[in-house]
Design a protein around this nucleic acid. Structure first.
Lengths: 354, 354
DNA sequence: CTGTTAGCGCGTTCAC
DNA sequence: GTGAACGCGCTAACAG
C-alpha cells in the first residue's frame, strides 16, 4: 500500500515540497535538515512510495515511452527486433509499447492512434500500407516517427530498411555458384511489398549475370504464410511432373516452411541434396541436413539507426530531416561443401529533404 | 496539429461538456442539436482531436493497460503467448505493455516497478525468481496480479501453468512405446525451475512404468541455452565412446538445438532414425526428418484462464481468491511409423485461499 | 440542450 | 529550510 506524495506529506506533517525534495534526492541541494530527511525516508521505506506516471506525463507532456507497431510479433524477425529495441529503450529509461497490426490497415491505424493518444515520445512503424504515412503526417511534430522494414518511399518520414536488393543478389550468386549456374525458382510471399520487390530485383540481376540454363521462375503470392509456400511448391512439383526442384529460394521463413511441408507431403521426404535459400535467418535452420543459404538482417545496426532518427531531432532542434538508411544484411551458409561466407555490403547515403 | 477538448470548446464557442458529448458520440443520448453537432464535428474533422490518455488515467485512476513480464521475448513460446494476450487485450480495449526480464531478478524487479508506476490495471508475470512474490505482495490491492508458467507455490497470487507433469509423462510414454521400452536420456536446462522439476517427475514416472533397459539418465544444467544443450550432448556422446544416443528428450527447444548442433559437429550428421522428444512445439520442427515428439502448450487456454483471474476480481468485488490452474498440454508427433496422437489432460481443482 | 466547476498527482515558481 | 498555489487535459456532478 504505497502512498502518493500528498499522503506522505499529510501523514508526516511536512509539506509536499519537502517530501518531494527528499524523495527526488535533492535534500542536499536544498539543505533540508537531516532530521526531516530521516523521518521522511523512514516513512517511505516503511510504507513505500508509488510514483504516478500519468500525472507526471500530464505535467511534463512527455511519457517516457516509445511505440512500436509491427505486423506480426510471432514472426521471429520482428520478435528479435523488438527485443533489441527494448534493450535500447531500457538503457534510456524508456518503456517500449509494442502493438501488432496483423498486416491489417484498420488495426494498424487503431494501433497508431492508441499509441499517439498515450503520448509516446517516439513511434517506430513497420507499416503494412502506404496510406499510413499521409495519415501520420497530420500528427507531425508531436512525436518523432520512423518507418522501418518497408520503404513505401513517401519521403514523409525517415526510413530504415535492410538492403534487400544486395541480399537477394548475394544469396542468388552464392546459390548459382553451388548449382553451377543452373537457375532455380524464387517463391515469394507478400509479393507487392517494396522489400520483396527489391529481393526479386536482386535475384533477377544475379540470374542475368550468371545463369546457364535452368528454371529461374519467380512465383508470387499476395500473403506471407505457410499456406502460400505450400501452394507455390505444389505448383512447381505438379508442373515438373511430380519432381521437386533441385534448388529453390524463398522470400521468408514462412514460405520456406510451407514449401518444405509440401515436398514432404507430396514426395514423402526432402532430399538432403536440395539446395535451399531463404530470407531471414533462424537458428532452427540448423536442423536441416541440406545446404542452406539465408540472409540475416542486422537487427543491432537497424535499431541503432532507428534510434538515431528517433532521438536525433530532439538534440538538433526541430530540423525536419527526412533521411533514409539502407542497412547491409549478412549472407549465412550452412552445410556447404565449400564453406563459403561473405557479407553483402552497401550503404545508401542519407538523403535530406525539407 | 490536433486539438484538446478545451481548445475546441474555446474556438467553437461551445462548452467542454458539449464538445465532449459530441466527440464521444453521445450527442444522440443527450439530444445535442444537429446544428451544434455538425459545427463541432466539422471542426474536428478539419483540425483533428488529440486524445490525452495521461489525463484520463489521472482522473479515472485507471490506465487501460495490462503489464506482461516475460523472461525472454525471442523465445517462441513467450512470443506466441504475448501475441495471444495482446489479442485478448485488444478485444477489451486494453493496451498490453510487455517487458522482458532476461531471467535477471534485478531487471524483473525494475520491470515490475516500472509497470506499477504506470498504473497497469493488471499484471501478468512469468517470474524468474520466487522472491518477486513477497515483493509484490506489498502492492497487493492496487492491481490484480497473475503468475504464469512457473509455479513457485507461494500461495500469494493466482497462478496459471501448463501441466508439465502429464506432458512429461505422456511424451515419455509415447517415446518408450516407439523405442520398445528402451529408456533414453533427458537433457534439462533451467533444472531448478518448478516447471522443469514437474517435467522430470513425469519422465521418471513413465520410465518406472515401462522401462526395459536402456539409459534413462537425467542431465541437468542451470541455464536454458543452446550452449547448455551442446554441453550435455557432448557429455553423452563422450561417455558412450563417440556414439550418439538412439533417442533423447529435451526440456526446451534451445536445449534441443544445442544437442543437435553438437551431434552434427561431433558426428558429422544427424542419423534420421534418432528418436527425438522436446518440450515446446515449433513449426520448424517440421524441418527434421526424424521421428519427433513434442509438447505444445495451449496458449489459448492459458491466456483465457489468465484473463479470468485478471479480470474476475473486478466483477466479484475484492474477494481475494488465490486460485491456481493447471492447463493440459498436447502431445504432437511427427514422422512416426504409427502416426499416434493423443492429448494429455489433467485439471487441478482451483484452490481458494484467504 | 448547454455551461461551470472541482479535482486526479505531480512539477514548478515564488513567498515566507 | 519549508510551505502554498497553480495548471497540465480530462471526467463527472451539478446547475441551469
Amino acid at each position: 500500500m504505497p502512498k502518493t506524495v500528498d499522503e506522505i506529506s499529510r501523514e508526516t506533517g511536512f509539506s509536499v515540497t519537502t517530501v518531494r525534495l527528499v524523495i527526488n534526492g535533492q535534500s542536499e541541494k536544498y539543505r533540508i535538515s537531516g532530521k526531516t530527511r530521516r523521518i521522511i525516508e523512514d516513512y517511505v521505506t516503511l510504507h513505500g512510495y508509488s510514483f504516478n506516471h500519468a500525472a507526471r506525463s500530464l505535467k511534463l507532456n512527455r511519457s517516457d515511452t516509445v511505440g512500436f507497431v509491427a505486423p506480426d510479433l510471432s514472426n521471429a524477425f520482428f520478435a528479435h527486433l523488438m527485443a533489441v529495441l527494448e534493450a535500447l529503450c531500457r538503457a534510456r529509461n524508456l518503456l517500449l509499447l509494442t502493438v501488432a497490426s496483423h498486416e491489417d490497415p484498420i488495426l494498424e491505424n487503431r494501433a497508431v492512434a492508441s499509441l499517439l493518444a498515450r503520448g509516446v515520445d517516439g513511434l517506430v512503424i513497420a507499416p503494412c500500407q502506404a496510406e499510413i504515412q499521409p495519415l501520420l503526417a497530420k500528427n507531425r511534430g508531436r512525436t518523432s516517427i520512423v518507418m522501418i522494414d518497408r520503404d513505401f518511399a513517401s519521403g514523409l518520414f525517415p526510413t530504415v530498411v535492410s538492403d534487400n536488393f544486395s541480399g537477394g543478389l548475394a544469396m542468388t550468386r552464392g546459390m548459382l555458384r553451388e548449382s553451377r549456374g543452373k537457375t532455380f525458382p524464387f517463391l515469394c510471399g507478400h509479393a507487392k511489398l517494396p522489400s520483396i520487390r527489391d529481393r526479386i530485383r536482386g535475384f533477377s540481376e544475379a540470374c542475368r549475370e550468371m545463369a546457364e540454363g535452368g528454371d529461374g521462375r519467380i512465383l508470387q503470392e499476395m500473403d506471407d504464410s505457410i499456406e502460400a509456400g505450400s501452394r507455390m511448391m505444389r505448383q512447381l512439383i505438379d508442373q515438373a511432373g511430380g519432381i521437386p526442384p533441385h534448388a529453390f529460394m524463398c522470400s521468408s521463413l514462412l514460405i520456406l516452411e510451407g514449401a518444405l511441408q509440401q515436398i514432404k507431403t507430396q514426395i514423402g521426404r526432402i532430399d538432403p541434396s536440395i539446395l535451399i535459400g531463404t530470407f531471414d535467418d533462424h537458428t532452427m535452420l540448423d536442423l536441416l541436413p541440406n545446404p542452406v543459404f539465408s540472409i540475416r538482417q542486422n537487427e543491432k545496426a537497424l535499431t541503432s539507426k532507428i534510434f538515431e532518427y528517433l532521438i536525433g531531432p530532439r538534440a538538433e532542434g526541430k530540423k525536419t530531416v527526412c533521411a533514409s538508411s539502407v542497412i547491409a544484411a549478412e549472407l549465412v551458409c550452412r552445410n556447404l561443401e565449400s564453406q563459403g561466407f561473405f557479407a553483402s555490403t552497401r550503404q545508401k547515403a542519407a538523403v535530406e529533404k525539407t
